[in-house]
Design a protein around this nucleic acid. Structure first.
Lengths: 357, 357
DNA sequence: AGCTCTCCGGAAAGCGCTTTCCAGTGCGCT
DNA sequence: AGCGCACTGGAAAGCGCTTTCCGGAGAGCT
């Protein structure tokens, strides 16, 4: 009897993996029965005697089903994609943590893709995820305010959905899809007003690349917050830099030199704020918050350990990740797109104080 | 002509995905040719005319190949698994970032699994990754000093390898497999000696769960470092707590109350060290490093932003992640297991100083 | 006793792809 | 002219699984 050891066309090595039919054979049942016992979803019942034999055979052979084969036959695979800019960035790893918890609760695996803010790479990963027949994909990275990109993204999303997958976004992305929308504008406005109320009149903003939607929205928030109190943000008070600690530090150094009389610096994320704090520390003539107030955005876990503890705008990042994945896993694809607005709240700590007069 | 719209047995909905045969048909070539053009690896050449037609058809149909089907036919899928304790922990997200870069360079996707230090979950994920026919898996979480677990882990690893997959570890895990070995012992010994040389004689250690291999090794390092100078670490100077900021804070509060005359606290990771720093800050009678020196381990990115900037032992985390994945992706599975020892280096900052006399 | 149901097991037809053959073509060579 | 050869395209088998039928067996009814 042919035991299958003769090389057949197709298929590479993959020596020792037990197959279902091996299990079936060993248990003395048909392939169908083995399948029903081990993965059976379709309400079919198998007698206890056979069940037991199949389980025994499977565990003796250390059988695990062949995921790709299963995915092919079922036309669906137990994975969701998660696309971020950078896993090492605590902003994204917090979102990822939330999303992974939900995935776990659904018995799904997570394919993680890091784009490093490369638009093409993002699109490429989306296509790969589509190829993998991911059940859904969560785009957690900020979108770009770039019409060409937006159009291509919309194309990928459409293709993905047309294939039966679901897509969720964190942020708007200028695209028509289910999304969790952190209130970047509101949070930034609140922070700006807070600074104003503390008496700050010369406020500077250190922001990340403006092409990032997140940055654009936060900047708008600052403007509108200031607008509420009849003030405005002069363009030369806005410094653009890398959305990192180093970016923040360098920008702050330049800013303090260029406009020595600023009394408050709003860094548009906590990473940058940490850099700003470091820059001010290195300036012997200034102390936070006596001479300069510093405020951040995100409330990363270590904001509280900065010195002085950072006043910032909190975004419930893990929750955002959770909600976004829930959006595509737990709810039927309704008619329109659904959005989950998420509030940002000001957390006052020690890095802000009354403006020096 | 049957266009395939009639429901066939097998396969669920999966409406709109273009298949290769559709592409072939549209391009007026055979399935084989289409496959060769689009995924062709086997040195076969296809004429330019046909190539062009296939490409055109594919892009018109927005074709992406069916990953599971490909994986099945090729008996190999373009994914590697990455198992960590917790993505939100910067220690692991740094390792993950390194690993992902390497995966990207190899055109592989990464399946991320977070175990939250649950042994069973870890084993379960390993089985799932095996089911997915992952090409390799990187176990980045610390192992446990638990013989039962070790045996089961060894079983999973063996099954994985027997199936043609490769396994790499960060840390020993008490298991026979390729591994990157951070020098926990050496780093901790160095730090302990450093404290001793600063004149500290009452040194306390705040550690994570001792069942974690990482913790056990670091603790051993402290003991041996102290042993070198003829000192020893009294058991009551070791406090075990959660391997987190909060754990470190709580432990430090208790410790300072219980043994008020300690002059140095070695927290076995930076997260805990941040908590220790916070605890000391809240103690009006003590200042770091005047009254207590604090030292951490890992050198996470924000160690430098703690106050005072944290003296710690640096582990090149991203590099560790890179090396580990390289181990299984770029080198032939040699005869024995390979290990990559990785040095830990003391980074002196401001949280340590001469012992108060 | 004869009939219809309900159950449960198995055979087999796919899922979408890769890859091995095989066959046809046009070329250079003797 | 005749032969072998390199080259290119296609047919078809098979990867490991799911699921639809189908059929046999026992149960319940008249």
């Amino acid at each position: 009897m042919d035991n299958g050891r003769s090389r057949r066309p197709g298929a590479a090595a993959q020596t020792g993996a037990a197959t279902l039919s091996l299990v079936a054979q060993r248990a003395g049942v048909s392939l169908a029965t083995a399948s029903r016992v081990l993965h059976g979803s379709g309400g079919r019942v198998v007698s206890d005697a056979l069940r037991a034999r199949v389980f025994a055979a499977a565990s003796e052979l250390r059988y695990v089903s062949n995921g790709p084969a299963q995915a092919l036959a079922r036309a669906s695979s137990p994975v969701v994609g998660l696309v971020v800019h950078d896993v090492a960035d605590p902003y994204f790893s917090a979102i990822a943590a939330g999303a992974m918890r939900v995935a776990r609760a659904h018995g799904l695996m997570v394919m993680l893709a890091a784009t490093f803010r490369d638009r093409d790479l993002e699109l490429e990963y989306l296509a790969m995820l589509r190829a993998q027949r991911a059940r859904g994909v969560l785009l957690a990275g900020s979108g770009f305010t770039d019409p060409g990109y937006t159009a291509r993204l919309a194309g990928q999303i459409e293709a993905f959905e047309q294939q039966g997958g679901r897509v969720a976004l964190v942020g708007q992305h200028g695209v028509h899809a289910d999304a969790v929308l952190p209130d970047h504008r509101g949070g930034a406005a609140q922070a700006a007003r807070y600074l104003w109320e503390l008496g700050h009149r010369r406020i500077a903003v250190i922001c990340g690349p403006r092409e990032l939607e997140t940055v654009a929205h936060r900047l708008e928030g600052v403007r509108s917050g200031l607008g509420c109190v009849g003030a405005r943000l002069p363009e030369e008070h806005v410094v653009e830099a890398d959305f990192t600690r180093e970016g923040g530090r360098a920008a702050a150094i330049g800013l303090l030199r260029r406009i020595p009389d600023v009394t408050a610096i709003f860094a548009l994320n906590d990473l940058m704020a940490a850099g700003v704090l470091a820059a001010v520390h290195d300036d012997p003539r200034r102390v936070v918050p006596r001479d300069v107030s510093v405020i951040g955005f995100d409330d990363l876990p270590h904001a509280v350990d900065l010195h002085p503890a950072l006043t910032t705008v909190r975004l419930p990042l893990e929750e955002i990740g959770e909600r976004a994945l829930r959006l595509i896993l737990e709810e039927e694809p309704g008619v329109g797109v659904r959005t989950v607005p998420t509030a940002a709240t000001l957390v006052v700590r020690a890095s802000t104080g009354p403006a020096r007069r």
